[in-house]
């Protein structure tokens, strides 16, 4: 599986414009995600974050603009997303297969990446230790019976099963108690340390800012800041992104 380790490390979008039934969601967004980085994309609601996440992962085809994975244009392909290319989305609201078992949910993550049965079970053995107890011990449970935090972890686990080089998470902290959010981010930190590119899309800045090295702030469909997550410019950009220039 050396192949998957090299694919999908660099995702880039350029000049993205997206409209839903005519309503502008993204307006000229360009973003280069460098391999091995931990990027936070922040912005208030309605900034176009989810749209960007879906375009980055090939789930949505932009109205205009180009998407490249490892330098290869991928704009036209969207029916099976970019999973096979090593780019995986953990969607907003988790979107697990609630009626399927925990185990089946995990296996599907690998199946989507066109992976054989033997490899599938090897990955399962690797992924399970990262999961909370309820997931490890309740593999035959229906996924819908897990708690919110466990479900979020399972959604991350399902993405890990695809052995991605880039993992994009859309609002992983939504609806979770802070203590559970920490757990999710801990796993993301581990993934990033092992070389996986991580992109988190968040509305509430606090947790993402603790882990992210680079930051992109989105406001009303446009990027208002892109750069390091730690310097003063970033803090200023956040304020502006959320509050407007009035302050």
């Amino acid at each position: 599986m050396a192949d998957t380790k090299t694919k999908g490390g660099t995702v880039a979008v350029a000049g993205i414009v997206h409209r839903y039934a005519g309503v502008l969601a993204l307006n000229g967004v360009s973003l280069d995600v460098q391999p091995g980085t931990f990027t936070a994309v922040l912005g208030p609601n309605g900034a176009g974050k989810s749209t960007l996440a879906q375009i980055l992962c090939g789930v949505l085809r932009p109205t205009q603009g180009s998407v490249t994975v490892d330098g290869v244009a991928r704009t036209r392909r969207s029916r099976r997303a970019f999973v096979e290319d090593g780019v995986v989305l953990v969607p907003e609201g988790r979107r697990l297969f609630g009626q399927l078992t925990v185990r089946e949910n995990l296996l599907l993550g690998a199946y989507g990446a066109r992976c054989g049965t033997v490899e599938m079970h090897r990955r399962l053995a690797e992924t399970l230790p990262l999961m909370p107890r309820a997931v490890q011990e309740g593999q035959e449970r229906a996924a819908a019976t897990l708690s919110g935090g466990e479900q979020q972890m399972l959604a991350v686990g399902r993405a890990i099963m695809a052995a991605p080089r880039t993992i994009v998470l859309d609002e992983p902290s939504l609806g979770l108690a802070p203590i559970l959010i920490d757990k999710v981010y801990e796993v993301l930190g581990q993934l990033n340390a092992s070389g996986v590119t991580v992109v988190v899309i968040e509305q509430i800045a606090a947790h993402a800012m603790r882990y992210a090295k680079s930051l992109t702030v989105l406001d009303r469909g446009s990027i208002v800041y892109s750069g390091s997550a730690t310097d003063d410019a970033a803090e200023e950009a956040l304020k502006v992104g959320y509050l407007g220039h009035a302050t």
């Binding site: 108690a177 802070p178 203590i179 509430i204 956040l238 304020k239 959320y242 509050l243």
Partner: peptide
């Protein structure tokens, strides 16, 4: 909320 007892800090985006 936090599993430990520190105060609820106003989150930065509102406090300003």
């Amino acid at each position: 909320y936090f599993g430990s007892s520190h105060h609820v800090e106003p989150s930065p985006e509102i406090s300003t």
